[in-house]
């Protein structure tokens, strides 16, 4: 790692001002950023640790909306969102491994927007709202391609609001070494329609599969998408699977998610 200083602010305001320093970068749980720093793929002058900010932690639920502080670790979401939004809690409880889940945070995951991360699919399928120190961003506007989001320089995710669907499920086909999603599909059924978000598959990062959404909104059953097929064009193709393979798995995971959501 290159050398850097670490700030540990105890409020969002203090973190935002600390991030004004040139080449400063926010540090969530560090489960992605620290390995990146070790490879010298990033060289911040200063890291601003967000894990000591109490106002950015915790899970609350009211009026059909689950709100999760941006600095909340996956293990806490898995435990505390289990009754209010079981599909989201199950997703959080299957990210990485137990030690990673004790450190990695939802805000860090969404800010990084890894194309194979789990959380982006939940945020997009739920129609979540990403709340920052400056504004609120709809999930549909937030994800802008692989490792790219609507966040401005120095903007911090303070919380994420998830509308709770009538039924939902996440199915992850794991890349067994990394435990990231080779393909992950989050299906959420709301009174006004079904949303299907796919992670791991596309070169553009998480995306909504609109044809499947239309078919499942008419008939929420696995066979409703029997006739659909996704193109392998634009899908990630690597040693773990071709684009066509990922396209196929996307459909299989979608059907499994619908079956499990019931």
């Amino acid at each position: 790692m290159y050398s850097f200083e670490v700030d540990k602010p105890d409020s969002v305001d203090a973190a935002v001002s600390a991030l004004q320093v040139e080449d400063a970068q926010a540090l969530g749980g560090g489960q992605t950023l620290i390995p990146t720093l070790k490879q010298r793929l990033a060289s911040p002058s200063r890291l601003v640790s967000l894990t000591g900010i109490a106002e950015m932690k915790g899970v609350s639920s009211a009026d059909g909306v689950v709100t999760i502080g941006g600095g909340t670790p996956h293990a806490t979401v898995a435990a505390e969102a289990a009754s209010a939004y079981p599909a989201l809690a199950a997703l959080a409880g299957n990210i990485g491994d137990p030690a990673v889940r004790n450190r990695g945070t939802i805000g860090g995951s969404l800010a990084n927007n890894d194309p194979a991360a789990c959380y982006p699919s939940a945020a997009l399928a739920s129609g979540a709202t990403i709340v920052t120190n400056a504004r609120e961003i709809a999930a549909d506007d937030y994800f802008q391609g692989m490792f790219t989001t609507a966040l401005d320089e120095g903007e911090v995710i303070t919380s994420v609001r998830f509308p709770v669907p009538d039924a939902a499920n996440y199915q992850k086909f794991e890349q067994p070494a990394s435990r990231f999603a080779l393909v992950g599909v989050f299906v959420a059924r709301f009174a006004d329609g079904v949303r299907v978000a796919v992670t791991g598959a596309s070169e553009d990062g998480v995306f909504r599969w609109s044809e499947a959404e239309a078919a499942l909104s008419d008939n929420f059953a696995p066979e409703a998408i029997d006739g659909l097929s996704l193109s392998g064009d634009g899908m990630i193709s690597d040693l773990h699977g071709s684009g066509d393979y990922r396209a196929h798995i996307t459909k299989v995971m979608t059907q499994r998610a619908v079956r499990a959501a019931g």
Binding site: V6, G30, S49, V100, R103
Partner: peptide, 19 residues
């Protein structure tokens, strides 16, 4: 490298000492 920090298992190679 797993140790417990405030009672929770973490990978100590992926956390800074200052944290």
């Amino acid at each position: 490298c797993v140790v417990h920090v405030n009672g929770q298992a973490v990978k100590s190679c992926t956390m800074f000492a200052v944290e």
